[in-house]
Each structure stands twice: as C-alpha cells, then as structure tokens.
C-alpha cells in the first residue's frame, strides 16, 4: 500500500484526468479473507483430532478393497436400481391417474399417496417382510400359487417397500411436471391426429422430463442411502455386511468409514450421470446448455492456437 501512495499523491494534485483515463477498481472484500482463515482453522483442528483419534487408517485401507463389502455395494446398487425403476413406473402411473377426470381413478391415486407418503418407510419395509403373517399364500388364481414366506425374500420385501414408497413421492414430482406442460402442446398433438396415449409419451412426458429429472436425480441419490434400511429386513447390502464384520472383529469405526467412502463414491458417479441426463432433456430449452467437462477441455485446448 505505501508503495503506491507517491503516485496517488502526485496525481491528486494534478488537474482532473480526462474520462477515458479514469479506470474503475472493484470493491475490496476484507470479510472474505477473515472468513477463509476461520474456516481453515476449524478444518485444521478437525484434521488434527482425526489424525490423533484411535482410528487405524491401515485397517480402513485394507477393507476398502474387501470383496464382501464390494459385494454388499453391488447389492445396494441393485436394490437402488430396482426400487427406483418401480418407483418411477408407479409414480408416472399414479400421477396420470391423479390427473384423470374419473373420480374413482384419481381418488385411488390420492389414497395411495396418502398411505405411502404418510407412514415411515422403515415401518413399510417391516410390513412387507412380515406379510406372511396375514397372507400365508400368494396366488394369481389358476396360474400361480406359493407360500408367502418363499416369495417375500428380504430382497423382494425391500424392493417392494422402497419402490412403492418412492412411487408416492415420485408421483407428486411427475404430476408437477405434467402440469408444467402448456395446454397448447396437447392441442397441437391432437390436431396432427395423435391419440391421448401417444400425446402423453411423445409430447407431454418428454417436456415434463425437464421438470421431473432433477428431483428424480436427487431422489435416486436419496434412495441409494435409504437402501441401508433394508439391512433391517436382512438384505445383505453394504451396511449389513460391515455390521456382520465388525460384530466379529470390533473394527466398528474403520468399517463404517469404509462404507461412507463407498457411499460417497457411488453418489459421485450418480451425480455425473444426473448431469448428462438433465442435459439430454434440456434440448430445445431457452437457456443455453452448460458445457460438459469434456467440451470445456476441448474449448481450452482449442483456444491455445488462437493465443499463439
């Protein structure tokens, strides 16, 4: 600062500059610096305490590659996929029913959302798992019949419970998406001779997707973590595998940290997928699409020759 003052004093006595020579300066932000220092101090404290904590990082590293945990992660991902597919299919169906002019159809849809959004998902999992207590047999008359305990395996109970619960939430998201599409779009589709179903899946749903996809992406990430509840009904997903291991070797924190790392990794991958899916459905939107990381790299590479 003092180094620049001589010029300042000199110029202040000079006659006023012409407007072209008056340069602007952006405002200083002393608060930002203070904030950054405070945050770094807290971070340093946390890192220091974890370094001194009784965590055996070697054990963490060892279990990161453990086959039984990766197997559990595979089960977590499979359950996420099955539950989300079921949830989205049910969500679209319930949303369309809810918007139907038939009061019975829309009433049933309303009831579905009321029940499955109104009770804890953990409770629903337990209900599905124990279904055999009230329905000893499941059957499609004349075609198929089996004992409920044989059908309602932990995986089936968890997939049904999570998927049906998800359907209740997704239906509200889909309903909002369908309502966001302009009525004129439906009329235009009818005018070129489309029926209602074709209008729905060629014209309305693709446009509703722009509204539907971001929250569904969020919910998929939420589902990935909610599948840990399936350990309660005995699905050997990653958390239950870790629990089985630490009941034996007592490396509780180490195994939980490994699980956290795997969950974070899976969520990060899903976030990337979400980015590209959102881009796909933003086609024709008014806002320009943000460049993909690859396009950014290419742009950066392409700019160099210009600078030369």
């Amino acid at each position: 600062m003092p180094g620049t003052s001589p010029t300042r004093t000199a110029s202040s006595t000079d006659p006023p500059l012409v407007a072209e020579e008056l340069l602007t300066e952006s405002r200083k932000h002393p608060g930002r610096l203070a904030g950054a220092i405070a945050v770094l101090l807290v971070a340093a404290f946390l890192i220091d305490s974890f370094a001194g904590a009784q965590i055996d990082w070697g054990v963490v590293r060892h279990y990161l590659g453990a086959g039984f945990l990766i197997q559990g992660l595979g089960m977590t991902l499979l359950l996420t996929l099955v539950a989300m597919v079921l949830g989205v299919v049910l969500g679209v169906l319930i949303a369309v029913m809810r918007l139907s002019k038939n009061p019975v159809t829309s009433g049933v849809a309303w009831f579905y959302v009321w029940v499955f959004r109104g009770t804890p998902v953990y409770l629903q999992l337990l209900l599905w798992f124990n279904l055999a207590l009230v329905f000893p047999m499941v059957s499609i008359p004349g075609i198929y019949s089996a004992r409920t305990v044989d059908v309602m395996t932990p995986f089936v109970a968890a997939a049904l419970g999570l998927g049906i619960n998800q359907g209740a939430y997704t239906s509200e998201v889909v309903r909002a998406g369908l309502l966001s599409v302009d009525e004129g779009q439906v009329e235009a589709a009818y005018a070129i001779g489309m029926g209602r179903l074709r209008t729905l899946y060629r014209v309305v749903l693709p446009q509703a997707m722009r509204v539907i996809v971001p929250p569904i992406g969020n919910e998929t990430i939420g589902m990935l973590k909610t599948t840990s509840l399936a350990s309660a009904v005995g699905v050997t997903e990653i958390l239950l595998q870790a629990q089985h291991a630490y009941y034996v070797n007592n490396r509780i924190m180490e195994l939980l940290i490994v699980c956290a790392v795997w969950y974070l990794a899976a969520v990060s991958v899903l976030s990337v997928v979400q980015f590209y899916v959102e881009r796909h459905f933003a086609k024709g939107s008014s806002r320009p699409l943000p460049p993909t990381p690859l396009q950014r790299l290419r742009a950066a590479a392409g700019r160099k020759p210009v600078l030369r």
């Binding site: 004129g184 779009q185 009329e187 235009a188 009818y190 005018a191 070129i192 001779g193 086609k283």
Partner: peptide, 17 residues
C-alpha cells in the same frame, strides 16, 4: 382429425424437437 390441419395463434410447436 387427421383429415384436417390446424395452425394456432401461439404456434404450439413441440419445443423439444
């Protein structure tokens, strides 16, 4: 309806195509 074409005041083009 297939025998009749219609043009709307607000165009109603499909924005995603």
């Amino acid at each position: 309806r297939r025998a009749m074409g219609m043009v709307f005041q607000r165009f109603n083009l499909f924005p995603h195509r």
